[in-house]
Design a protein around this nucleic acid. Structure first.
Lengths: 410, 410
DNA sequence: ATTAATATGTTGTATAAACCTACAAACGTT
DNA sequence: AACGTTTGTAGGTTTATACAACATATTAAT
């Protein structure tokens, strides 16, 4: 009906917007004085003081105790400012990943530090959505004392599924779901009333890997998660780019084969499945693992190197193709297969140069070192991000919560 | 230094933001009463009145004379509102396209109506940047009376080049340019001090084809310009997505060949050059034109149909590849080759379905019917868009214009 | 050690712009 | 003609920022 960018700013909204900006600045820069904040926000010093007073009253911000390591950069003159910081345990957010083989949960605080994690084996395909949601919710809440629950300010879910931005799952082939409103199910299963967001696991991973990172704050980052499947996500200026149907960055389904024969997509060429399939043919071990493969590659065992070389080539082609379309300046590799990249950096670079025209820029490629809870962490970060935005529930109280179902474009 | 999204809203900014929102709403919806505007902007009716008064005083908005065609939809009750509209000739914007073979210029008014156009033959490769800029500027200004000049509020340039968002051309292979600051050159060549923006021609075309269109106001549109070369642009929620280096959407360099032999990119498969090359081999005419080819395809001449079929297949593969990455919900085809699409709609759709997995959504495909000045028009639209934003020069007067060179990420 | 210089945090006042309420005006309906 | 409904406008209120002034804390200089 009306564009989000079109809504006007009322009086309350100014303060809200500025409080949010202050919180974001504190999150991004860690510690700031009121005066520094005022400069960053192009705000008067006194206004900055008022905003901080309000945030302090809410328990979100406090004056840091004197242990600042005294930046050695430049000797500052004049009265030193009182450093301010977010109060980490003022509130917290939960993220869960409902995977195919496990459920992971993460609790993060206002400083996006991981407070605790849980992982539990899980047989996704054999379990109904409702049961999966129940398991996920109880696992996430099990280590949270009841007294702390009310400080929860958001619950994020990530799962390998195509879903729209409202959390309506169109299709989750690996879990056998179809047309279920995951976000609503989680909302109903929760014993608290907090914002709930659901997102594709690769997208969530991408958010988690970039959220708060100052490098990712501007520019285009392509995130690749390589496990059995190959998923991906795109972060533009620090925000997830979902595309029209949440499928943006689903790079695993790119067609890469330029070999004769059946058409093969990137997932079939660089996924764990394929690597291990090839490796098993040549390995002398009974039950070769991916770790064995990495060692063999490192030892330059020809059979393993050959597999890795194929992988490097397919990866390079896939990345070049993707960059022709989104022109990323940063590529981040994640998932267990990413461990192969450091051994093949030069070969991947060579294939990239061989594949694309020389006038095109080459993006930087890095490996993400998050643990196994990356996707759940990203889901939690989504709610942190939401909290530090004008959509925050912090401001939902006064607005009359006008019900407008189906307002968005279908 | 500080993120754009991080700057706070001061007092002036609120009004500015609301004036901008009002102008945008009027541009988007054409005519609105004060009360309608207030509802759209979620603003109080009286505030809406104040904002309109201010805009009217500036000569940008006026009360429409009584000729509204009286929407027959629903009989409205109560006092009818006074319709407001933008004053089209309050200000104007100029756009020029410095092409390889011609220079085109467009003048648009505040309502983004085309007021006048000029086209002039031009031999790009043989002419220096400075001379090209001079020619472009004088052609754009030649039909503008001096008295009107001061109402110019922006000048846009489009040209086939890789350039950053500041208008610094990295490389323009077709024109032989390298590392020239096109926007600065144009700024210096202009006898007026107005905002100047430069953009890649395909990107500009994409803006022009979607700007103001309500369909494009949300969602992801992939725009394809098919001439001798094949360029492209991506519009996300009504805004151009440039990527890290302005190369986003440069789909012509996608690798599509899955045939054995040399690797071929999309441009080499669906560009005018290729089609005509193949067509010349089979045509009985002395100097076959693309028009002849279209007729032959329409007449189902086997040789022509075969060429078109190859084209349809390559196009389908390219589009599917692109959608795997950006998940577009709308594809717009432009350039002279786009005329082939209506004859091949079914074949393209068939190839799309054959190429991608059935679970993926199929974007809608349409043909853009802009004239030859599309790219220059888009360049002008960029400045219209800028004028209707908080970056508008309208607001630059009071702010102290603090010079901060090199502030952006390098 | 005292003074000057500089930057910070706080306070009180001014101002801008939105909100709210009320009311006259303009139109359709009864 | 009376009534209900919606619009546009005017006066008063609210709120959050800007501005100016001042006390405070620290470094540099005399």
């Amino acid at each position: 009906m009306n564009d989000p960018a079109l809504t006007a700013s009322s009086h309350r909204r100014i303060r809200q917007s500025n409080e949010v900006a202050a919180l974001r600045a504190l999150h991004q820069f860690g510690r700031l004085s009121r005066a520094e904040l005022a400069r960053k926000l192009r705000l008067n010093r006194s206004s900055s003081g008022h905003i901080i007073a309000s945030l302090t009253a809410d328990g979100l911000v406090r004056e840091a105790i004197e242990d600042s390591p005294e930046q050695p950069g430049y000797a500052r003159v004049g009265r030193p400012g009182i450093m301010l910081e977010l109060v980490p345990d003022a509130i917290f957010f939960l993220g869960v990943e409902i995977g195919v083989e496990h459920i992971s949960t993460v609790e993060i605080d206002l400083g996006t530090n991981i407070v605790s994690t849980n992982v539990e084996p899980f047989d996704g395909p054999s379990i109904s959505v409702e049961a999966a949601v129940d398991r996920a919710v109880s696992l996430a809440l099990q280590s949270i004392p009841a007294s702390k629950l009310e400080r929860c300010e958001g619950f994020g879910v990530s799962t390998p599924a195509q879903m729209d931005k409202h959390g309506l799952v169109r299709l989750a082939p690996l879990l056998g779901w179809r047309n279920v409103h995951l976000a609503d199910l989680v909302r109903d299963a929760l014993p608290l009333r907090v914002p709930v967001l659901a997102e594709n696991d690769a997208n969530a991973f991408a958010i988690g890997a970039t959220y708060g990172r100052s490098e990712a704050h501007s520019g285009v980052t392509l995130f690749l998660v390589m496990e059995s499947g190959v998923g991906g996500g795109i972060i533009i200026d620090g925000n997830l780019f979902r595309g029209a149907n949440g499928l943006a960055g689903e790079i695993g389904h790119l067609i890469v084969s330029d070999t004769p024969g059946p058409r093969r997509n990137l997932e079939q060429l660089i996924g764990l499945e394929t690597i291990m399939g090839e490796y098993r043919k040549t390995s002398t071990l009974d039950h070769p693992t991916f770790g064995n493969f990495l060692v063999d590659v490192q030892d330059r065992l020809p059979s393993a190197v050959s597999i890795a070389e194929q992988w490097a080539r397919a990866l390079a082609i896939g990345l070049v193709q993707a960059c022709r379309i989104i022109d990323a300046d940063r590529i981040v590799l994640g998932g267990s297969v990413a461990a192969l990249y450091p051994l093949m950096t030069a070969r991947v670079a060579a294939h990239i140069h061989a594949t694309q025209e020389s006038s095109f820029p080459v993006p930087s490629i890095t490996v993400n070192d998050e643990g196994t809870v990356g996707s759940a962490f990203g889901a939690a970060c989504m709610l942190h991000q939401r909290y530090l935005s004008l959509d925050s529930q912090r401001f939902a109280d006064d607005t009359a919560e006008l019900e407008e179902p189906g307002e968005d474009e279908g």
